[in-house]
Design a protein around this nucleic acid. Structure first.
Lengths: 206, 206
DNA sequence: CTCGAAAATGAACATTGTTCAAGAAGAATC
DNA sequence: GATTCTTCTTGAACAATGTTCATTTTCGAG
């Protein structure tokens, strides 16, 4: 039989179940947090055996990492959807989009940043690269706003700015230790971005 | 017998072992990360039974939280040791002290911020209060630098600034996803603080 | 229809947090 | 010092959960 094309019914079913497993795991993490995710629960909810989860993802970390991978992708998609016409508005848009995503998917984002691998296995390169890519999205607008600065300097500036935004948001959305009241977070975050840009010599009217 | 004073030998031994258990747990978290901490390892290292750990801390979370509690205390002590004579220098000192502590005790700080309680048990109030207190330490110097601003506004500003610093540091020290190269972190962090202060209308020479 | 490869299964195992009945140790009383 | 009472300690047993793998089932190829 032709090996190249023609996905067999078997393959279709396999992919279908893989998708189902991921969806169930994601929903569980999103609603009850990463710590409550159990292999048996996922298997039962998907109507298959424990072994099948292992066949599909190798181990439990494999399932978690797959969900995390899709979380970064969703985040990146959302960040890239921010309009790029006005660089200043874009920076605010990125911060606000990040806040929006973090509000709607707090547990998924926590899973991405807080999950530690078993033993000392290395963190997957591809996820790392995707996160770095997301955090570099402030680079382009900042370059437009700071055309005279050393580009490598601006690269660092942008990642620092995004890290700062990340810190404000992740602590702000933590129910415990509310550094900034959630209801004010959106407004305050915008204020923070403005302040920092002002410090870089960029004014709103410019 | 007098109940008030006079700590019996029993009490002394109990306290001594409690201290030992905490020390062992802390060392384990610091070197191998929270995820590698096991009740049996701690008990064996302390030369006592598993049950004794439970007698002392109630459950495993109890031990972790005790270590975390002492971590905040150590952090706060270090932050409060920053000279307060010059508010501007104090702000830089606080950021730098936080970076220093985070560098030396990365895993302990991660344990503090990333540990999730079993089920949905509430996060201990006292630890929460201590973290909030630490994060409010930028308030005093900022008030001195911004005497004309609404004090409640400055309170928020200070927590946001600390949250931002926290974000930059915690992502910067993560071996994976290096948003900012660790060897530049110190210098860049100072630059960040300066930039943000400039945005608030505060200049170095002022 | 038969055969063989691939997948699915779930019982069994390993690890680890937790409990608790029984015993040991220490304090109080005489 | 003996007795009794309280408290602490112990570790075997249990429960929850990630992991393995021999067996069975499925499904496409010839």
């Amino acid at each position: 039989m032709n090996i190249v094309q023609e996905e067999s019914r078997r393959d279709r079913k396999k992919l279908q179940r893989r998708t189902l497993l991921i969806e169930i795991a994601r929903r569980s993490i999103a609603t009850k947090g990463l710590r409550s995710l159990k292999v048996r629960d996922v298997a039962e909810a998907a109507g298959c055996s424990i072994g099948s989860v292992y066949n599909e993802f190798g181990d439990f970390d494999g399932l978690i990492l797959t969900v995390n991978r899709e979380t970064v992708q969703a985040l990146t998609t959302r960040l890239k959807a921010v309009p790029t016409d006005d660089p200043l508005r874009q920076l605010h848009g990125l911060a606000d989009a990040y806040l929006g995503f973090a509000s709607e998917h707090a547990n998924l984002l926590r899973s991405l940043f807080e999950h530690r691998m078993e033993d000392d296995r290395p963190f997957p390169e591809d996820i790392l690269a995707m996160v770095m890519e997301a955090f570099a999205l402030m680079h382009a607008p900042l370059v437009r706003l700071l055309p005279d600065r050393d580009p490598s300097d601006v690269a660092l500036l942008s990642r620092m700015m995004f890290s700062a935004v990340h810190g404000i948001i992740s602590l702000g959305l933590e129910e415990r230790m509310v550094a900034v009241p959630p209801e004010q977070l959106r407004e305050r975050l915008a204020q923070f971005v403005d302040t920092h840009l002002a410090g870089l010599g960029i004014t709103r009217s410019a």
